[in-house]
Design a protein around this nucleic acid. Structure first.
Length: 412
RNA sequence: CGGGGUAUAGCGCAGUUGGCUAGCGCGUCUGGUUUGGGACCAGAAGGUCGUCGGUUCGAAUCCGACUACCCCGACCA
């Protein structure tokens, strides 16, 4: 991709109406554009990152044996009334269509998925069943804030599992938990499993929290063991002994990036979903649900992976494998050739071919934060200078060495 | 939904004891000189001053209402 053609423009100054770091940096670097409070457009750079996150999630969900589907975002009032959530979910976006018909925009999809799976998985032979989708969710938050972290429309991967027995649900729940850890690790985040309330769903749930000062959630954690609880259910005071290992607990801030629940029969009862067992008897179906917010992961990574110069994308999420910078116009042929050759070798490059000063391009590249910078200029002669944005390595290399470098970083 | 703040060109801002043609920086366009850490010179385009109403000879400026956005809180399937 030629940067001269890329639809985005970096901003020297922070947008006036953003305070959160993720919104400031993603806006300044040209990844997103705010349409209204809590609602963002993803520009080409931002969409690439978002898609990489979604792809990682897809791989982990597929490995779990879940099948990807896509449900509608526009839903009829009736299903929400049936579950009781028409009045219980206060952030539900409700709207009227012609003929005065009531609709809701999907804030979650139990109401759609439960009757859906019921149609196709009526026998014990069909269970367990697990389906997921990646779709935008709509929640009428009383106060959207913190950039991508709390929006009114945001990307969500929601997985639902259906089981014939509690042990089967438990087994899947554990596997899903591991898959979630895999997702966060691959996205460059250290997530912590935290016990939390289940909201209107179930008594307790597990959240995946990324510890950072810029988080919105308060959690009580033990540094010695894996004990962690959200303050919404935790009554422990700072410094008191950990109920699990006896060491002192502390209060920290965190960003919630995932949440899993055992719903048991809450929705299968509401939608009268039972399966037929080996003996021909009808039995209750047990259900679990598992959510991850790709856009929130993007916000969390932007919040954490940055320095004074700009963003620093982890290798797995970088919008392009490398950012090629032409700093000396007289070497355009060399840079063009490198660009063509690396594309031919299968890599995604952003090529800064603009007629801008060297300093301008270097500043821009640091702000955008692509994992590796490849610089063609006078310093490296016929070679190319490479630099990892996270400062882990830099040097000079010829074409073959650059290919090896990229291979090592991106091809496993 | 309570409290606080903001609203002037694409972005960031100045201008407000009411006054003539609403400015500055960045960005954009034209020409020229530049090119290793956001270059320089010359010229140009770009504005219903958030919206509606009021006061006035005259409103970006004063008054009222509304809207949007940000922050704190409440809320958070």
């Amino acid at each position: 991709m030629l940067q001269s053609k890329l639809l985005s423009k970096t901003l020297r100054e922070s947008p006036k109406d953003e305070v959160s770091q993720n919104a400031i940096l993603l806006t300044r670097a040209g990844y997103v554009d705010k349409l209204m409070a809590g609602v963002y457009s993803y520009l080409p750079l931002g969409l690439r990152v978002l898609n990489k996150i979604k792809q990682i999630i897809r791989q982990e969900m597929n490995a779990l044996g879940a099948q990807e589907i896509l449900m509608p975002a526009l839903t009829p009032k009736e299903i929400w009334v049936k579950s009781g959530n028409w009045s219980k979910i206060d952030v539900l976006f409700k709207l009227k269509g012609s003929g005065d018909k009531d609709y809701a925009l999907g804030a979650t999809h139990e109401e759609v998925v439960t009757p859906l799976v019921k149609k196709f998985a009526a026998s014990y032979r069909d269970l367990p069943a697990a389906v997921y989708q990646i779709q935008d969710k709509f929640r009428d938050e009383p106060r959207a804030k913190s950039g991508l972290l709390r929006g009114r429309e945001f990307s969500m991967k929601d997985l639902y599992s259906f089981h014939a027995s509690e042990t089967d649900l438990e087994e899947f729940y554990q596997k899903a938990m591991q898959a979630y850890f895999n997702v966060f690790t691959r996205c460059g985040l250290k997530a912590r499993l935290v016990e939390a309330s289940g909201g209107t769903f179930s008594k307790y749930s597990h959240e995946f929290q990324v510890l950072t000062e810029s988080g919105e959630d308060n959690i009580v954690v033990c540094n010695q063991c894996d004990f962690a609880q959200n303050t919404e259910i935790c009554s422990l005071k700072v410094g008191v002994p950990c109920p699990k290992c006896g060491q002192g607990v502390q209060l920290v801030k965190a960003i919630e990036v995932g949440n899993i629940f055992k719903l048991m029969t809450k929705f299968t009862k509401a939608f009268d979903y039972q399966y037929v067992d080996e003996g021909g008897k009808r039995q209750p179906v047990l259900m679990g649900c598992y959510g991850i917010g790709p856009s929130r992961i993007m916000g969390a990574v932007a919040e954490i992976c940055q320095d004074a110069k700009g963003l620093i994308w982890p290798a797995a999420l970088t919008p392009f494998h490398a950012h090629l910078l032409l700093l000396d116009a007289s070497k355009k042929k060399q840079a063009d050739q490198l660009y063509q050759d690396l594309i031919a070798a299968g890599y995604d490059l952003l090529y800064d071919d603009r007629l801008e000063s060297a300093g301008f391009k270097l500043k821009d590249a640091d702000l955008i934060g692509i994992n590796i910078q490849l610089i063609v200029g006078e310093k490296a002669g016929d070679q190319v200078e490479y630099r990892f944005r996270n400062d882990s390595a830099k040097g000079k290399a010829d074409f073959n060495q650059v290919v090896k470098l990229l291979e090592k970083e991106y091809v496993q």
